[in-house]
Design a protein around this nucleic acid. Structure first.
Lengths: 145, 145
DNA sequence: TCAATAAAATACTTTTTTATCTTTTATTAT
DNA sequence: ATAATAAAAGATAAAAAAGTATTTTATTGA
């Protein structure tokens, strides 16, 4: 098992890619994004449509249309993307799958998981969609392969 | 998305349950385990057969048969259970799903995920199947609901 | 207005995960 | 030996996730 669903992995890679490709007000098409992050195009289209509907990214139809990010979207934490796609069970669900697990009715690993969930949440909250724009321009980070 | 698959959640809950129910040399049947951890019985049977085949737990057929744990199984780290069921991608896979992600070809979140994976691994390595036997006897921990 | 462009929406297929059901094998006690 | 017990094995089924294809809507520029 991976931490995120495939949908979420593609979604995060896509928002990073869109961020660094549309830094100066332009837009980018689904084909180029899918190619840039090595994902199946029609599947990614659905993911981005969903993120667009939820206001996480922006889009525009027609010629010279495409996906882009406005200023406030660039500053969104990655946790918003994850929550939009995978929900918030990663941040507050029980590690052993118990619905009623809580401080007063804990599973054996309750406290251990609380720490881990918090560190995942903190990491995603402290990283914005635009965080890596500079580094992506220099090519030191990979979003495909 | 949860951290573990359903299969793995049931597996971990089951080994904890078997550990505390068979502390004094006896065995426990699949029905009682499924009931004790609130899991679908035939599905759990599959999981336990697999764990038994892999030597993570022990079993015995026939009257008074059932599942149990020998001394060395009780001292196994939980990471062995997780690895047997979900594989080791949780411990060494890329958070963004990139096959070739590594120190020399990192994804943007490579270092952040390394820390998180390490803390998950450490937690599972430091916890053995028998770790909670005493606490489970007192009923302070829940394995169902 | 019309053709071209590109995302949105919808419907569908495949694969994987989760779950169930049936038959077989091993063991015990009578 | 035989009947009862309980896990092992195998075959199927249902649900969810991943992926594809087709049609519709919005926008632009000629």
């Amino acid at each position: 098992m991976a931490i995120f669903s495939k949908t979420c992995e593609y979604g995060i890679r896509a928002v990073f890619f869109i961020a660094h490709k549309t830094a100066k007000g332009n837009r980018i098409g689904i084909k180029e994004i899918a190619d840039g992050i090595d994902s199946p195009e029609p599947f990614l289209a659905k993911i981005l449509q969903d993120l667009s509907r939820k206001g996480i990214i922006q889009s525009f139809k027609g010629p010279h249309g495409g996906f882009y990010l406005d200023e406030s979207s660039l500053n969104r934490p990655l946790s918003d993307v994850v929550e939009a796609v995978d929900g918030n069970s990663l941040f507050n669900g029980c590690g052993l799958g118990l619905k009623a697990c809580s401080e007063i009715n804990p599973c054996p690993l309750h406290n251990q998981f609380k720490e881990i969930r918090n560190s995942i949440y903190k990491m995603l909250k402290d990283t914005t969609i635009g965080t890596f724009n500079d580094e992506l321009l220099t090519g030191i980070f990979s979003l495909k392969k």
